[in-house]
Design a protein around this nucleic acid. Structure first.
Length: 123
DNA sequence: ATTATGATTGTTGTA
DNA sequence: TACAACAATCATAAT
């Protein structure tokens, strides 16, 4: 089975990967306190995030002194850009599968919503 | 105690 | 085509 890098072949493009034009402060995330749509499937992490999961472990092992994620984030980005495409494909595959699952979950979520989630809140 | 912020790239939706 | 917003993480600052 070969790597099904469907979306992998071209990680480039999109908008300038460098300094994005006009990047104002990202709006603060809504407080999780409101248990509104906890059942709504959230966007799956991207390949980069999966890579970060592994990277964090390694990074912490070699740099137990590091504290915040910011340094790790930079290190991740730098490493990611230097990573070989073949190694990236591995993460792209995971992300791709997760996206498919996410879409499926979204469909079921919509169905459930129409089913009776609106009038009766089980649980 | 609780919440927002900081940085990183990828994916997606909208105009 | 191009931009805006959001995904996880977690120490830190602020209230």
């Amino acid at each position: 089975m070969k790597t099904r890098s469907q979306t992998a072949p071209k990680p480039l493009k999109t908008v300038a990967l460098g300094p994005r034009p006009g990047s104002p402060k990202r709006r603060p995330r809504p407080k999780p306190a409101g248990k509104g749509d906890l059942r709504a499937p959230k966007k799956p992490p991207t390949a980069f995030f999966y890579f970060m999961e592994d990277f964090r472990k390694t990074y912490k092992q070699e740099n137990p002194s590091v504290k915040s994620m910011q340094e790790i984030g930079k290190a991740c980005g730098e490493k990611w850009n230097t990573m070989a495409f073949e190694e990236k494909v591995k993460y792209y595959d995971i992300a791709t599968e997760k996206r498919a699952e996410f879409e499926k979950a979204m469909i079921e979520y919509n169905k459930k919503k129409e089913s009776g989630e609106m009038s009766e809140e089980s649980d």
